[in-house]
């Protein structure tokens, strides 16, 4: 963050350490409550036990983490390709937009958990999970990119008209760059949603064995009342979500920092 260079050292320390201190206190309280009341692990495991389980079950859990991350990444990639292509199609033809946009909205407003069982009948479980993650990640990219492509400064548009720019030049030199911040905003939302979609679909699928994701580990551990492992898997999903969000925020910042208002320091 460039803002950091403008704020005092004390403020920076405060910003960095306050969340860490607060988190440490919360975990400490949790640990203390579990020990004081001697709660059994199948009711509430202590944080230390969760970390120990994470370590001891790392083989299975890391494999599942990779599966979930792979599904999320592929779904996000396909959502980017599909969302951007469809947005470009919408931008070039009003007829296409009017006919296809309702479908996109229907897919978006219908809860994915309700679509998943149906997809599981028609598709292989792995494919169904991927499709679910894709459906939820697709819409923010489509709608944001379409909005961006339509939000071009009118005077700039007239300037392009004045110099006789053809459709392609107007698209690639004007509309695409103008849509970029909107697209990146959509991408950041879609990244989190792709993970949620993958997790929801895995739970709906409920199939186990090799090559199953973190959500399935949670379901499986639940059946066995292995609550510490449920927490460990949950922790990994949270961390994965945070990592995806951080990565996409970084991409957004690096892409826009030279010119976009969103990357400006408030202090400057």
């Amino acid at each position: 963050m460039r803002a950091a260079s403008h704020i005092s050292f004390g403020e920076r320390v405060l910003r960095l350490f306050m969340p860490i201190v607060a988190l440490a206190i919360a975990i400490g309280l949790w640990e203390a409550v579990v020990r004081y009341y001697e709660l059994p692990p199948y009711i509430l495991p202590s944080p230390t036990l969760v970390f120990e389980t994470l370590k001891s079950d790392w083989g299975t859990l890391s494999e599942s983490l990779l599966v979930t991350l792979r599904t999320t990444a592929i779904a996000l990639l396909l959502a980017v390709i599909g969302g951007v292509l469809l947005a470009l199609l919408f931008a070039s033809s009003r007829l296409v937009e009017l006919s296809l946009f309702p479908f996109a909205v229907i897919l978006q407003v219908t809860p994915i958990i309700a679509i998943a069982p149906l997809l599981l009948i028609y598709l292989e479980p792995q494919t169904a999970v991927l499709v679910c993650a894709w459906i939820v990640a697709f819409f923010p990219i489509l709608s944001n990119t379409a909005l961006g492509l339509a939000s071009v400064d009118r005077n700039l548009q007239e300037l392009f008209q004045l110099y006789g720019a053809n459709r392609w030049k107007t698209l690639f030199l004007l509309r695409v760059p103008a849509a970029l911040p909107y697209f990146l905003g959509g991408l950041r939302i879609a990244g989190g949603l792709a993970l949620i979609g993958a997790v929801v679909a895995e739970i709906a699928a409920g199939t186990g064995g090799r090559g199953s994701g973190l959500a399935y580990r949670i379901v499986e551990s639940g059946y066995r009342l292995n609550v510490p492992r449920m927490f460990a898997a949950l922790l990994l999903i949270s961390l994965a979500g945070i990592a995806i969000f951080a990565l996409l925020t970084l991409i957004q910042h690096l892409t826009l920092r030279r010119w976009h208002e969103s990357a400006l320091d408030r202090e400057s």
Binding site: D153, N155, L156, L159, F160, Y163, G164, A165, K169, L173, L174, P177, A178, L180, R258, W259, H260
Partner: peptide
């Protein structure tokens, strides 16, 4: 009415590129 994503030189070059 400048393109915010382009440098000064790129903005000035725009009419030449378009024509």
């Amino acid at each position: 009415t400048l393109m915010p994503w382009a440098t000064v030189a790129q903005n000035v070059r725009l009419p030449l590129r378009l024509k």
